[in-house]
């Protein structure tokens, strides 16, 4: 009840949501009335998302009014620290979740929980910022980097795959500092670390302050830009018991993806309203939301993302399972396949 109270849908937000729906119509998206009319109502009207810090998850917040249109009257965003996601998922505290694909696979490998990947959300969003002493990723050999505050968390895993891709051993060739983001920025500014693995709004914030230069921008640099970063996943029990609700929720999220791509300003505002970011961060988040290619989700095959990251993580010994095991046990593309025609998915 506390969460509902904290994250519930106030009248002000509801009106804001309706305005957003109107805006969506303005930017070109129109609800598929035919589909909505034919499809039966969802098995449940309650939907619980994991509420996380990353700003790139904007579509799940933007999707709220769309979810109401799909028949969900009780949409909850339940907060939980990243380290507790697996446990909370196992306890059934979330129905749907958005997360970095590699990190999710890592969690599934080391602390299995009933999760199924449903679709991709967006590519890119991570950026590797180098100091003046580094010109390329290979220059990081023997250097000190910040790749998140916790070992084997999203930034560290992404960074590991990036350095491994150029032939470095992420476990031995690089020195890490495990400090929080603010401390890392200070160290970077003081020249004590040579690279900074950033996620929104970190990269823009650093560069806005004239610190460092981009070594890797996963929004545009290949191969990273060719694979999803964040993916939508659901609790296995929820998916099994509520297939219509799952499909409707997924539809709303993917539509929200398009809205974020076309109206990043509104999306940024919603993030502030949902208290995902602070007002002061708007100036940094907006460019990031504009930069992340939210509109590209139709062109990327989510299964190939699982393959790609599973292969990379297996190469560096972070996981032992092979890609096909993840696909077989933790992927359910039924809903995406059902929505393919509706959305004009190309893959």
């Amino acid at each position: 009840m506390k969460n509902k109270k904290a994250d519930g849908w106030s009248r002000r937000e509801f009106l804001g949501g309706l305005a957003l729906t109107g805006a969506a119509a303005v930017v070109g998206w129109r609800p598929d009335l035919v589909t909505a009319a034919v499809e039966p109502p969802p098995e449940t009207t309650r939907l619980r998302f994991h509420k996380g810090k990353p700003a790139c998850w904007a579509p799940i917040y933007v999707a709220e009014p769309l979810l109401r249109e799909e028949g969900f009257t009780d949409v909850q965003y339940v907060f939980g620290p990243q380290t507790e996601v697996g446990k909370m998922f196992s306890e059934g505290k979330f129905d749907l979740n958005v997360g970095f694909s590699a990190k999710t696979m890592y969690n599934l490998e080391h602390q299995p929980y009933p999760l199924k990947f449903l679709s991709g959300l967006h590519v890119g969003c991570y950026a590797l910022i180098g100091s003046a002493r580094t010109r390329s990723v290979r220059d990081l050999k023997g250097r000190t980097v910040w790749a998140g505050a916790i070992e084997n968390d999203g930034p560290h895993l992404f960074f590991s795959t990036i350095v491994a891709y150029v032939g470095l051993d992420p476990r031995t060739d690089v020195n890490y500092v495990w400090v929080d983001k603010d401390e890392a920025i200070r160290l970077f500014r003081d020249g004590k670390i040579d690279a900074f693995m950033s996620f929104p709004p970190g990269a823009h914030e650093l560069r806005h302050n004239g610190l460092g230069h981009l070594l890797i921008d996963t929004n545009v640099d290949k191969p990273w830009s060719q694979y999803f970063c964040c993916m939508v996943a659901g609790h296995s029990d929820f998916i099994r018991k509520n297939p219509i609700a799952t499909r409707r929720a997924l539809r709303a999220i993917l539509k929200a993806n398009d809205i974020v791509a076309r109206d990043p300003e509104t999306a940024a505002r919603i993030l502030i309203e949902r208290k995902v970011i602070k007002e002061s961060e708007y100036v940094h988040i907006l460019p990031e939301l504009k930069h992340i290619p939210y509109n590209m989700w139709r062109d990327y095959n989510p299964e190939d993302t699982i393959r790609f990251y599973a292969l990379r993580m297996r190469e560096i010994g972070t996981i032992k399972s092979n890609p096909q095991q993840f696909i077989d046990q933790h992927a359910d593309w039924r809903f995406m396949n059902e929505l393919k025609k509706e959305f004009g998915i190309t893959w």
Binding site: L311, N322, Q324
Partner: peptide, 16 residues
Amino acid sequence: NEMVNRAEADMEAKVD
């Protein structure tokens, strides 16, 4: 790329 990933994934599955 997908083709390569598939082949590599198949190979890893076969190794396992």
